[in-house]
Design a protein around this nucleic acid. Structure first.
Lengths: 132, 132
DNA sequence: TTCACTGCAAATCATTTGCAAGGCC
DNA sequence: GGCCTTGCAAATGATTTGCAGTGAA
């Protein structure tokens, strides 16, 4: 699906900047921060401003067109992947990887609560950072 | 266990300020932010400074005496509870509740990865915020 | 044309840090 | 006494916002 169609599908008004941001996310499934998206676009000769990237990502998140990952202190990472999956963060190098969830854990939600989203964050060591 | 013993057990040097912070966390299992801890202590006539509360919580986390919850954008919440449990956040009022995990989900960790911590965050609606 | 969106710079907010003074071992 | 911790205030870094100009419908 094109970025343009993606915006349409999520009922978000089209602008060149939004298309650029969505395209970047689609081509870089690396859970980037807003600043990483900004710097990535700059390298590709985009003229978007940093504020617009931040605002655009916030808009996309509000429309559930991207999900926000709270996986690292101090920054918000964004993910345009639609399939539910868990995230792995290496405690040494900070690398973030996708992880397939085999089965859902069952939770004892107290009476009256309802869930709409469950996220899993696994912290550990990636292959390069294993203790010898 | 007293706050003093708790510090000792985690090999953290004792100071009055650290004792106050730990005591606060033990008596307020509400996943407070650093600022909430600071304001709570102020109400109890403590003389700790804001920076010390931030630094103390960071120290406690580094010694694994408290866990940091990345459950809300922009702030770090702290939890002194030792039992593994999931966290629920109401998407409307922001309330955070503990949730019992019945069974662990199984994950397909790619070859070579190792996990040391898994956290679950459930976002949804609490009883007071259910749609009618 | 109209109204939402962008760009810039300034503002904000949580958190961290430098440094001098104080307290624990 | 030596060293670690505190307190204050200033610094930092991510994110947001005000406002005027621009572009999409």
């Amino acid at each position: 699906m094109s970025a343009r169609e993606y915006l349409q599908q999520h009922k978000i008004q089209y602008t060149i900047e939004r298309e650029e941001v969505v395209t970047y996310l689609m081509e870089n499934l690396t859970h980037p921060t807003a600043d990483e998206v900004y710097r990535g676009l700059k390298l590709m000769d985009s003229s978007v401003s940093r504020a617009t990237v931040f605002n655009t990502l916030k808009t996309l998140a509000e429309h559930h067109a991207v999900s926000t990952l709270l996986i690292e202190e101090g920054v918000i990472r964004y993910d345009i992947s639609t399939k539910p999956h868990a995230h792995f963060r290496c405690s040494r190098c900070g690398r973030i990887a996708d992880v397939v969830v085999n089965s859902n854990a069952s939770f004892c939600l107290p009476e009256g609560y309802s869930a709409c989203n469950i996220s899993y964050v696994i912290v550990g060591r990636c292959p390069e950072c294993q203790e010898k």
